[in-house]
Design a protein around this nucleic acid. Structure first.
Lengths: 247, 247
DNA sequence: TGTATAATTTGAACTTGTTATAGGATTGAA
DNA sequence: TTCAATCCTATAACAAGTTCAAATTATACA
């Protein structure tokens, strides 16, 4: 019985356990499969970068990858699964985040958000299609993006803020994280459909995160967050004045 | 030159100006067009209610409406536009909201959110497909849902809260509304893909709105909002304990 | 080593949203 | 009433995602 590996699994394989302890029994069949899979992923990256979202046709992809049209479906399951399988940025994200040094636990959260957005906006063609796939409601691949590693990272940041006394202990960390994620996701959505200009995206995220975090913060930490709200909305209004009104 | 009316226009027509002053020159051609349009809308409603999201095929829809396959495209433009044209709930929403009497301006916001959610959850088949169309990023119908009337209503609620001294005057009302909307939209998204059980949806919305509003609130109004955060997250955690973990 | 079995690629076919073309109906003017 | 212009409908076709039966290949076992 062949099981189609979810993008999340493929992603997990990539991420940490690079321990090559159990690669020995890789028969010729598995090796070929892995190579085809890699070729498909590679071709998909190329095609998206070249032609953008709409340019990724399964027939062109199959031709480019040197396989038949049905093979991507056997190996990944659907077009959407292929697009989501491109998401392996967490390694890069972790490396770059490790370089940041912020003592303030809330500052760390904002830096993480900024970094995430910077990565996405640096490669719009790729990540716009990827995020469009996230918002595709046709099939049931929702668990893909919110994998455990990603969750654990953000929950760690929030837990640190609680430990530092920035966020009240009575606040549910799980739901705080979730509401923050709502803001992040919708900002990505507004970005890919053009309701937010790239310049406004970081400020919009800062603004939303600051609002929610201030709602969850202890009184002592409320002040800086209020200042951050004002600063980010100032940037947003200014950017809006220059460009056409994005709303 | 025939102009395809956007769903937003059709929606606006429906909403307020029912003044039948200019219906006289409705020739036989226009009358037939209006009737076909109504038949298509009616058939779309039926089909979605019967078969759910995936069951709405354009061929079946055309057959059910007694028109040719091309007619819905001529009259509406796309399948997505038809689904979005089903959105005419604002009249019902306004009527029911007018019945609510809350002196507290923030309470009014929470009641409006609850009411909105109640309307959506009362007809899951229809509104799940409708919201799925909202999150469809393929074409450029994004301005449809966020029409001026809807915006004006919510902005009015926020402005009233500012006037009452509940929300700081230094807060940008436009961006506050937008961040609230982010939470609302993502909660709808989580609902339609099954990440949120119907029972959890109202509490999740209350929770998100309370967090953001507390972040924007004046100190005097912060206390009740904090209580609301705790109450809603309590409900969420309890609901989570009963069901399978929705995350 | 040879063969049976299971898994996997493949090319064709199916479904569905969308569009181009051709034919037909409606309106306004002579 | 009749003619011409215009708009609309319907058929067919196209493009893209997805699936299915058959061929092909690798593995397991004698």
């Amino acid at each position: 019985m062949s099981v189609i590996p979810s993008p999340a699994e493929a992603f997990l394989d990539f991420d940490e356990d690079e321990a090559p302890g159990e690669e020995a029994p890789l028969g010729r069949r598995e090796a070929g499969k892995a190579e085809r899979r890699a070729r498909i992923i590679h071709a998909a990256r190329e095609l998206i970068r070249e032609t953008g979202n709409a340019g990724l046709s399964m027939r062109v992809l199959a031709q480019r990858a040197g396989v038949s049209l049905a093979t991507p479906y056997n190996l990944f399951g659907s077009k959407r699964a292929i697009v989501l399988a491109l998401l392996e940025d967490v390694r890069e994200f972790r490396e770059r985040f490790a370089l940041l040094r912020a003592t303030d636990p809330l500052e760390r959260i904002f830096q993480a958000v900024d970094l995430q957005i910077e990565i996405y906006l640096a490669d719009p063609a790729l990540y716009k299609t990827m995020w469009a796939a996230v918002f595709d409601t046709s099939d049931d691949l929702r668990a893909t993006l919110w994998n455990d590693k990603r969750d654990a990272f953000w929950r760690g940041l929030i837990a640190a803020a609680v430990e530092a006394g920035a966020i009240g202990r009575e606040i549910s960390q799980e739901w705080l994280q979730r509401q923050l994620d709502h803001v992040f996701r919708c900002i990505m959505l507004d970005w890919i459909v053009g309701l937010l200009t790239p310049e406004a995206v970081p400020s919009a995220a800062q603004h939303g995160y600051a609002l929610i975090l201030k709602g969850a913060a202890t009184p002592e930490w409320s002040g800086p967050l209020g200042a951050r709200i004002l600063a980010s909305q100032q940037r947003l209004i200014e950017a809006q004045g220059e460009k056409l009104s994005p709303l």
